[in-house]
Each structure stands twice: as structure tokens, then as C-alpha cells.
């Protein structure tokens, strides 16, 4: 995926970026800042230019991450993915019209002018209008909550908020804490009879995870249906048998 992103940004050697090498990572970051992101003026990029002296470079990089507002990400891979995504977003915003033709059909009608950058988003509020979800304080709160709960970053804080809600509901709510631990043999999800994409582990793994999530929500729905049936049965059920009616055939 990183390779694809580098390729689309026009990196000269997208296949040769070895993530294990810190120096190469540094040079990729520098290339992105030089060519695409341009957050700093040329003079301010001095520290990042010290690829050969990694100590100075690290210092510059830490500041650079902070200036980019990058969320706290642990691995080098996650950081690069985030910066690449940021660079691509900037590239897109430079001239969104250029990519209009490859928009999906559904988003086209509304995508003409309204989605242009700078257009004010509708102000969304929650709690009877007491909280404006686009307020900086609110966003910062969501980000903080997410980092405390170790939820991965998402550019849209509202999506992240949904994830927070889900984790709280599933793991931290009183109902969840009192829930009996699940008994029985776990079903290893890569052992099913379903074929996903055996030759492409990159596709196979997330597909299986997505399908499991889908199955989980289906299971919830089915359980609700069963509960409803049982509550109706409490009113209607009255099974009867009458052995006098029985007759065994010849």
C-alpha cells in the first residue's frame, strides 16, 4: 500500500523504500516535505536535511511531526502511512477538479461545487445543540479520549468518536464488565472453509476481519429477533399433547 501511495505521488523509486532502514525513511520524509507537503520554508528544512547525521535529523523530525499535527503513532510504518496520506490530501486539494472524472457515480451530483475546499460545513451539534462538534475543544477532547483508549487515528474525528463509543459500549460499560466470559472452543478465523484470496495475504487478512465484523452484527440482529420471538411466545405459547389421539399404523 505504501508503495502504491509513493507511486501515485511520483516518487522516483517507490519499490526500493526499505522501511527497516532509518536513513532511507529519513530521506523519504525529506522528499515528501520538499516535493509535496512544503510545510516549512526552504530555510526551515535545514534540520531535516541532515540525513547523514541522524541525531540532528531526529530532533528536526520530532518537531516536524508536532508541526504537522500528527497523532502519536508508534511504528515507523504507521507514521509514514499517515504522512503519505497527508501529502496525498494536499495534492488532491490543490486541484480537486482534476480528479472529478474518477469520482464514483453517486458522489458526482453533489460533488460538483459543494465539496470544494473552504465551503463551510453544516454546523453539527449534539446534546440538544449544547456542543458544536466542529469546535476545537471538542475535537481535542475526542483525540485525547482516543489516545487514552488506544484507538487508531482517523482524519475525521467523528468517525473516531464512533469507534470510542463502540469500545466503551463493548468493553467498559457496566453491562459488558459483568458479562460472562465466552466459553467454548474458539474458532480460528483463518480456518474457515471460505475462500477469500489465498494468494494475497494483504487482501485476505482485512477481508476476513471485515467479514467477521459483519457476522458479528448479523448475530446481534438475529439474537434480537430471537428475543422478540421468545417474548411473544410468553404470551401465546401453550403446547398440548393428547396421547388418546395417537395411533400407530400397520
Amino acid at each position: 500500500m505504501i508503495k502504491l501511495k509513493l507511486e501515485s505521488l511520483g516518487h522516483p523509486t517507490p519499490s526500493d523504500v526499505a522501511l527497516s532502514n532509518r536513513k532511507e525513511f529519513a530521506s523519504t520524509i525529506l522528499w515528501l516535505e520538499d516535493q509535496k507537503i512544503r510545510l516549512y520554508t526552504i530555510e526551515d528544512r535545514e534540520k531535516l536535511r541532515n540525513i547523514d547525521n541522524l541525531n540532528i535529523w531526529e530532533e528536526g523530525y520530532t518537531k516536524y511531526c508536532a508541526d504537522l499535527n500528527m497523532p502519536p503513532l508508534e511504528s515507523q510504518c504507521e507514521q509514514l502511512t499517515w504522512i503519505l496520506g497527508h501529502a496525498m490530501r494536499l495534492e488532491f486539494l490543490d486541484d480537486p477538479g482534476l480528479y472529478e472524472s474518477i469520482n464514483s457515480k453517486q458522489s458526482q451530483p453533489q460533488g460538483n461545487n459543494k465539496q470544494q475546499p473552504g465551503v463551510q460545513q453544516n454546523v453539527q451539534t449534539i446534546f440538544d445543540g449544547k456542543i458544536n462538534v466542529q469546535e476545537k475543544e471538542f475535537i481535542a477532547g475526542v483525540r485525547l479520549l482516543a489516545s487514552k483508549l488506544k484507538i487508531p487515528h482517523h482524519p475525521n474525528h467523528l468517525v473516531q468518536l464512533e469507534a470510542v463509543a463502540r469500545v466503551v459500549h463493548e468493553r467498559l460499560s457496566p453491562a459488558a464488565k459483568n458479562r460472562q466470559p465466552i466459553v467454548g472452543t474458539p474458532f480460528p478465523f483463518d480456518k474457515g472453509n471460505d475462500v477469500v484470496s489465498p494468494n494475497d495475504p494483504v487482501l485476505d487478512y482485512p477481508m476476513r476481519v471485515l467479514r467477521l465484523l459483519q457476522i458479528q452484527s448479523l448475530r446481534q440482529l438475529q439474537t434480537q429477533i430471537n428475543e422478540t420471538i421468545v417474548s411473544v411466545q410468553n404470551l401465546t405459547a401453550n403446547p398440548k399433547t393428547d396421547t388418546k389421539l395417537g395411533k400407530v399404523g400397520r
Partner: peptide, 16 residues
């Protein structure tokens, strides 16, 4: 089981 589930040609069930 045989007492509960009537079997055979011409058998009749015990559910009214």
C-alpha cells in the same frame, strides 16, 4: 420415542 412419535401407514399424531 416410539410411544411419542406415531409411525407407519395410517398413523395419527398426538398433537390436537
Amino acid at each position: 420415542l416410539f410411544d411419542h412419535i406415531p409411525v407407519g401407514v395410517g398413523s395419527k399424531g398426538i398433537i390436537p
